[in-house]
Design a protein around this nucleic acid. Structure first.
Length: 417
RNA sequence: GCGGGUGUAGCUCAGUUGGUUAGAGCGCGGGUUUGUGGUACCUGAGGUCGCCGGUUCGAAGCCGGUCACUCGCCCCA
C-alpha cells in the first residue's frame, strides 16, 4: 500500500514546532488580556458570502486562493482565509452592537490556496485582535501598541520594523486614486505586466510593486498625504503623535497599501528581513466599512493579525520535554505496584513515566534518553522493607525512602531549578 | 498562476566520465554488564535512489512527464 501523506502546503506539527507555536500564542493571549481584549473562537468555515462580500470580488483571496465548496445541502461554504470578517460577523450576530466598544482576540487556522513557500502555507495559523466600535484614532494607537508589546514580549523587536501609512477616508481615497491613475496612464507602456492589470483593478497596489521599473515610476507619483482631507490628515497626525508618546519606532511608508477593500485610514505592518520574501509578520489597519458590508450598522473597527508560523520561526526556542521521575520495577510483575505510585506522584504535580519493558539496564537507558531527573526503583528488597529507592540520575546517588519523603525531596529540588 | 533549485537509510549528507553486492556520520536494535543509565568498545537491522515512462548491453547519475519541498514573482500573516 502506498504511504499516505499530508496535502500540499498542509503540515503536521510535531511537539518541537508546536511548542514554538504555543509560545507565540500564549504571549499573544497574555498581552492582549492585559489590554483587556477577550478571547473568542469563531467557526473555521462559514457561508462563503461572509468572506466574498467584504473582501471584494477582485481580491486574490476570493478569486483564486479560496477553499470553497458545497455541502450536502448545497450551501456554498468557504474555509476562512482570514479572521476579521468572521469576528465582525459574530459580533453582529451576538447583538453586541448595543455594547461597544468590544475588544476581541482570537487564534487558529486559516486557509488559502496559494503556492507554498517557507512562511506561506495553505493551512496556516494567525493570532489576531479586533477593536470594534471606536471611531477614535486612539483605538488605532492602542492596537498598534498592543502589537508592539506582543512582539516585544517575544523578544523580536530588534529584528522587526514598523511601517505605517494612511489610506485616508473613502472620500480622500477616491480623489487620490483618480490622481494616481491619471499619473500612471502616462507610463502605461513602461509598467510591468502585473501592474498594467492592477491599473484598472486596484491601482493603489502598484505603489508597493517590487518590480524595479515600477518602483522608479512610482517615485514621482502623487503622494497620498497631499490628497487627504482635513479630517483624514488630522487622524494620521494623531496616530504619529500617539506612537511618539509611546516611544514606538516607526517609519511612514506612503507606498504601503492594503489588498482588502474594507480598509481605510490607518494601515501598518511589522516586517522582518529574516524570513526571505515572506517578511510581514504582523499587519493590520482600520476597517470602518466592514460592518456595513456584512449587513450590520455602521460600526468602525481596527485590528491586526499576526502569522504564527512566521513568528514561531523567529522564536526558535529549543524544546526539551523534561521528565521528573521514571518508575522502574525490578520485574514485570512489580508494574502493578508502580501504578498507585504514579498516581500519587501525578497528584503531587510531578511528571512521571512508568518504564514497562526490558531489564534494569534497558530501563535506565530509557530513563536517560527521556532526560529523567529521578528514578524510583521498586524491587524485592524495597518491597520487603516497605520503601522505595530514589535515585538522582544527575549525580547517581541512591537512597531508601518512603514515598512521601521521596515526593518531598523531588519537589524541593524542582523548586531550586 | 509564472520562473529557478533540490529530491539517495529515521535525520544530515557522500556517491568520479552511466558499469555489476549503493556508502558514511548521527540515531535505532542487540551485546560487553543476572539490581543500574550517561562514556567506551563490539555487533545488527534499516534503501522500490520521490513516482512514472524513455534512451542504453547496462541508469541513483542522461532525457521527458509527474508529485513534493525550496527560492523568487504574484499575493499576503
Amino acid at each position: 500500500m502506498e504511504k499516505l501523506r499530508t496535502v500540499r502546503g498542509v503540515h503536521d506539527l510535531l511537539p518541537n514546532e508546536l511548542h514554538n507555536h504555543n509560545e507565540v500564542i500564549n504571549a499573544g493571549l497574555e498581552i492582549s488580556d492585559k489590554y483587556n481584549y477577550s478571547q473568542i473562537e469563531i467557526p473555521i468555515f462559514e457561508f462563503a458570502e461572509v468572506f466574498t462580500r467584504p473582501l471584494g470580488k477582485s481580491s486574490d483571496i476570493v478569486t483564486k486562493e479560496n477553499y470553497i465548496f458545497k455541502d450536502r445541502s448545497e450551501d456554498e461554504l468557504m474555509l476562512r482565509p482570514e479572521g476579521t470578517s468572521g469576528v465582525v460577523r459574530a459580533f453582529l450576530n451576538a447583538g453586541l452592537v448595543q455594547d461597544v466598544p468590544q475588544r476581541f482576540s482570537y487564534y487558529g487556522p486559516m486557509f488559502r490556496y496559494e503556492r507554498p513557500q517557507k512562511g506561506r502555507l495553505r493551512q496556516f495559523k494567525q493570532f489576531g485582535i479586533e477593536c470594534l466600535g471606536l471611531p477614535s484614532s486612539m483605538a488605532d494607537i492602542e492596537v498598534i501598541s498592543l502589537g508592539n508589546d506582543f512582539l516585544c514580549k517575544l523578544g523580536l523587536l530588534d529584528k522587526i520594523n514598523l511601517k505605517i501609512n494612511t489610506l485616508g477616508d473613502f472620500e480622500s481615497r477616491e480623489i487620490f486614486r483618480d490622481a494616481l491613475v491619471i499619473y500612471l496612464n502616462d507610463y502605461k507602456s513602461k509598467l510591468s505586466r502585473d501592474s498594467l492589470k492592477r491599473l484598472s483593478v486596484n491601482p493603489l497596489r502598484i505603489l508597493d510593486s517590487k518590480n524595479e521599473g515600477d518602483q522608479k515610476i512610482v517615485e514621482n507619483a502623487p503622494n497620498i498625504l497631499e490628497y487627504l482631507n482635513s479630517n483624514s490628515k488630522a487622524r494620521f497626525d494623531d496616530i504619529c503623535k500617539g506612537l511618539d508618546h509611546l516611544n514606538i519606532d516607526y517609519t511612514i511608508d506612503n507606498n504601503l497599501v492594503r489588498g482588502l477593500d474594507y480598509y481605510c485610514h490607518t494601515a501598518f505592518e511589522f516586517t522582518t528581513n529574516e524570513l526571505g520574501s515572506q517578511g510581514t509578520v504582523l499587519a493590520g489597519g482600520r476597517y470602518d466599512g466592514l460592518s456595513k458590508m456584512l449587513g450590520g450598522p455602521d460600526i468602525p473597527g481596527v485590528g491586526w493579525a499576526a502569522g504564527i508560523e512566521r513568528l514561531a520561526f523567529m522564536v526558535q526556542s529549543e524544546f526539551v520535554n523534561k521528565t521528573d521521575v521514571v518508575l522502574i520495577g525490578q520485574s514485570e510483575k512489580n508494574n502493578f505496584l508502580l501504578l498507585p505510585i504514579m498516581k500519587k506522584l501525578v497528584q503531587n504535580g510531578i511528571k512521571t513515566e512508568i518504564i514497562y519493558d526490558g531489564n534494569l539496564s534497558k530501563k535506565f537507558k530509557r530513563a536517560n534518553k527521556i532526560k529523567a531527573l529521578y528514578a524510583i526503583v521498586l524491587g524485592e528488597e524495597e518491597i520487603s522493607k516497605k520503601v522505595i529507592k530514589l535515585k538522582d540520575l544527575k549525580i547517581g546517588s541512591e537512597e531508601f525512602l518512603d514515598l512521601n519523603q521521596a515526593i518531598k525531596r523531588i519537589k524541593i529540588n524542582e523548586d531550586l531549578e
